[in-house]
Design a protein around this nucleic acid. Structure first.
Lengths: 338, 338
DNA sequence: TTGTATGCGTTATCAA
DNA sequence: TTGATAACGCATACAA
């Protein structure tokens, strides 16, 4: 650090004013070829890198947006974020990512930090967050879009119907004849996606004439082994389930793995479903029947919405990305007599 | 944006000078309880957030470091980076992460961007990168540490012996009696970790009196299905391997999956090993025998080294994190007569 | 086309 | 303990 060259150094070396150097860098058209060449030579002779802070201060813009995701630990958000980032890059906008560890308090902090660091808008996952986070967003007039869920807020969202998708999956499970159904869910507190998925399953039960209170739900954090332990707990209940609907694929894969360790065949002895359709879902045995979410489309859509918002436009309030169930083998009919 | 309140607004509201507000925020001890309270009230009445750029400009420091990792797509770097980040946070330092997509040109850009955004130091993965990246680092006097590999550069590294670990794994494979060994490797160009692992396997072959040129190596990018296709290609060779050493766990899991699709039993018909010991390695059937890398220790160590470097200290040049092989079942003796 | 000069929001030096 | 004020590195309106 410290020995960083500045605009003035470049100007001196090229024998021009700082204004000209600035123009060379930002509006090359407004400068003669001759001088531009001279300036550019000086620029990379010195290894000059503009000071971002100074730039932001003087121009009052950063071409930067932020995103706070719950975790980088698994692949759940990777694909969507990648698409988001690529769409931003195409518009010359940089993405700053941070993760909250599924902690609402941390998420609120992260939002502040991102805005402080110049984020002109932020991408948020789901709708459940501290009131103070929303208040900060409003007070600082920071545009934001919500993804991975639908929202009825004034700010736009580009997501999918978590409840509807989970309900559809549960309906499929019921249609196969399952009556003893359990769920391994993510922690639903301050996680609307997880909560909606549970709700969706309950709605399907009600619709099927079953008592939604009979649904055993194990809430765990999203990890293979946590899912495995939840699976064990479910299988020792008085009435073990014949099908387990998992809140996402990480839980689903963990459950399949636990089933095999216990000597159970999937789906003959126990059916298991997931949600998200991450890569690994297709690479376990049997393949995980799950809800496919078009993450790329969602990420790109979210980027478009946020960019529009930043430009002062008013994008569509709600973009609903369609999901679909993909059958892979982990879901089958219950054993007769089970 | 735009309606952002500044120090002056807070000062006006609290009836003090901007200098006092600044002190309240940065050196609360140097101010009376009374005035501090008044100021703080104004601060959150206005939802004031300091302008990072202005701060960086005036104080000439950012408390920020950057990291460029090859990908966020899989879990390979997640754990180590998490530990890195936590150690930094404990020191009040923010981490900026970006990914290069295993592209050297992009990596060089990302490094520039991070430095421009105020990174006072950067974490880099492995040693293979464009000369201009190293030159930029030197010219800008940006401290950096290299992780995930050992390095003989002047700048410190906190990593592990990729070649040695791969060699040890190959020795184990040889000791079990395998003679027809193949590898599914990551792309080795501009990836020293991948290259070293191949080299390590070759070294073991030589040491075992085998011709290293007989080693079939399939280079693919790190994805389940790419590994699956590579597996197919290997199994249709004139002499199919009895053991496949994979460059990492993603490839290993993909290979196991492909083996099963092909109706092969692991390890009875084909042995498969991985590298990294990410979560999923323990959750496939059979469990993936792999090289365990203490990512947390590495991440924390890298943070310590980088922080020291930034403080102007001179940390240990090379920290070698010990790896170990963890047996899970995907590696066994070759079939007799195979 | 190029140069001059001012201001961006904050910290830090120096006085009071 | 507090307040005035000069940097910090850059963009930009205005002048030349």
């Amino acid at each position: 650090m410290s020995l960083r060259s500045k605009l003035e150094d470049v100007a001196k070396m090229a024998g021009v004013s700082t204004a000209t150097v600035s123009r060379c860098l930002n509006e090359p058209g407004k400068v003669t070829n001759k001088t531009r060449e001279r300036v550019m030579n000086a620029v990379d002779a010195l290894g000059y890198t503009p000071h971002f802070g100074a730039k932001a201060l003087a121009s009052r813009k950063t071409r930067t947006v932020g995103a706070v995701i719950p975790t980088m630990d698994n692949a759940i958000f990777a694909r969507g974020l990648q698409a988001f980032q690529e769409a931003l890059a195409a518009a010359g906008v940089t993405l700053l990512v941070s993760s909250s560890g599924y902690d609402a308090e941390q998420e609120a902090d992260q939002i502040r930090v991102l805005v402080m660091r110049g984020a002109e808008g932020v991408l948020l996952i789901g709708t459940a967050r501290l009131a103070k986070a929303y208040e900060f967003l409003a007070r600082s007039k920071t545009p934001y879009v919500i993804a991975w869920a639908l929202s009825d807020r004034e700010s736009p969202c580009v997501g999918f119907d978590n409840m509807g998708a989970a309900k559809a999956m549960a309906e499929r499970v019921l249609a196969l004849g399952h009556r003893d159904i359990a769920m391994i869910s993510g922690i639903t507190a301050m996680n609307d996606r997880a909560a909606s998925r549970v709700e969706g399953v309950r709605a399907a039960l009600v619709q099927g004439g079953l008592d939604p209170d009979r649904l055993s739900v194990e809430e765990v954090h999203y990890a293979f082994d946590a899912a495995g332990k939840a699976f064990e707990r479910l299988m020792v209940r008085e009435v073990p389930p014949t099908a387990i609907i998992c809140g996402n694929d990480v839980l689903g894969v963990g459950a399949i793995s636990a089933a095999k360790r216990r000597g159970l065949r999937v789906p003959e002895d126990i059916s298991i479903t997931g949600f998200d359709d991450i890569d690994i879902a297709a690479h376990v045995e049997p393949g995980l029947t799950t809800v496919h979410v078009p993450h790329e489309r969602m990420g790109a859509g979210a980027a478009a919405a946020l960019l529009a918002l930043i430009e002062g436009e008013t994008p569509q309030a709600t973009v609903c990305i369609e999901t679909r169930i993909v059958e892979r083998g982990s879901l089958g009919p219950p054993r007769v007599g089970a």
